[in-house]
Simulated scan of single mutants.
Amino acid sequence: MLTPAHIDRVVAAALAEDAPWGDATGEAFLPATARARAELRAREAGVLAGAEVFAAAFRLTDPAVQVTLHAADGDAFAAGDVLAAVEGPARAVVQAERIALNFTQRMSGIATLTRAFVDAVAGTGARITDTRKTTPGLRAVERHAVRAGGGINHRFSLSDAVMAKDNHLAVLREQGLDLTGAIRAARERLGHTTRMEVEVDRLDQIEPVIAGGVDVIMLDNFSLEDLVRGVEIVAGRAVVEASGNVTLETVGAIARTGVDVISSGALTHSVRSLDLGLDVQVRAGDPADRAAS
């Protein structure tokens, strides 16, 4: 999902936003010949995501900047670990620093939180997935971070799968349409490779939805007792997804009800950026270079 072309596109846009006419401070204070070396160091423990995005921020600012990665996406690290080294023209290093950190800190925060959710459901068979509650324009970046943390991705966009939620069902009810019949009619209009998911918020909706021929049924904001009963009613006829009120404190109990997938928007919309720092050392060029500048 997060291709090199996509990385370059989102990082280039961020760099242009941050320095539309160059870095006035770097150009005023740093000699053109000055070089810098920096280390990306963890100030707290976590899971890395965004290593290639970090490197792209420097490469797109100046191809002369060299980035050496000491960890890969999905690697756990401790406070104090050095995750990458950067070396090149000082102006470029300090210009790209903030954008490189912004991406890597947020992506690593998402990966770290996702890993905590995954660990909380270990041994249950339930999988952790994200939602479309992502930062506009950065969905691929944030969803890559979810995968780095051990989670899986829900549909990427409205174009990828059919997912009828409460508002869709409300329109059907207002028009007096039969739920099972409406689902079957929708299924007939779909290609054979398109999956269909329907959200329900009551136990009595499950059988009509299953009868329509869905692939996935979402049990939204169900109590733990109703989740257990819902899994029993579905009885393996569809993938069962649980959603709503999913937190680190509740996700383990939700997983133990027997659901197949647990989705949480908190993985991307409520995450805290991880504390990573870039410690820069700047040195001037040789005397001849300084004289020339």
Score class of each variant (00 low, 15 high):
68 T>W: 04
53 V>R: 06
37 R>S: 05
44 E>C: 11
66 Q>C: 07
34 A>I: 10
34 A>T: 02
60 L>G: 00
52 E>I: 03
32 A>D: 02
51 A>T: 11
52 E>L: 13
67 V>T: 12
63 P>V: 07
46 G>C: 09
42 A>S: 02
47 V>I: 15
25 T>Y: 02
66 Q>E: 14
49 A>H: 06
66 Q>K: 14
46 G>K: 12
64 A>W: 00
50 G>A: 00
32 A>H: 06
57 A>Y: 07
56 A>T: 08
32 A>R: 05
39 E>M: 04
52 E>F: 15
64 A>Q: 13
63 P>W: 10
66 Q>F: 04
53 V>Q: 10
44 E>N: 12
60 L>I: 04
34 A>H: 11
52 E>T: 11
57 A>C: 13
62 D>M: 06
52 E>S: 12
51 A>F: 07
39 E>T: 04
49 A>Q: 09
66 Q>W: 03
30 L>A: 07
70 H>N: 13
40 L>A: 09
31 P>Q: 07
71 A>E: 08
45 A>F: 02
31 P>V: 05
40 L>Y: 05
70 H>V: 01
30 L>P: 02
71 A>G: 02
62 D>E: 00
68 T>A: 15
52 E>K: 15
27 E>V: 06
36 A>V: 10
49 A>R: 04
55 A>R: 14
56 A>Q: 09
60 L>E: 08
64 A>D: 13
53 V>H: 08
27 E>H: 05
41 R>F: 01
36 A>K: 09
27 E>R: 13
37 R>F: 01
71 A>P: 05
51 A>E: 03
31 P>S: 04
25 T>L: 00
56 A>S: 15
38 A>W: 08
70 H>W: 06
68 T>S: 13
65 V>P: 00
66 Q>P: 00
62 D>T: 03
59 R>G: 01
50 G>T: 08
40 L>P: 02
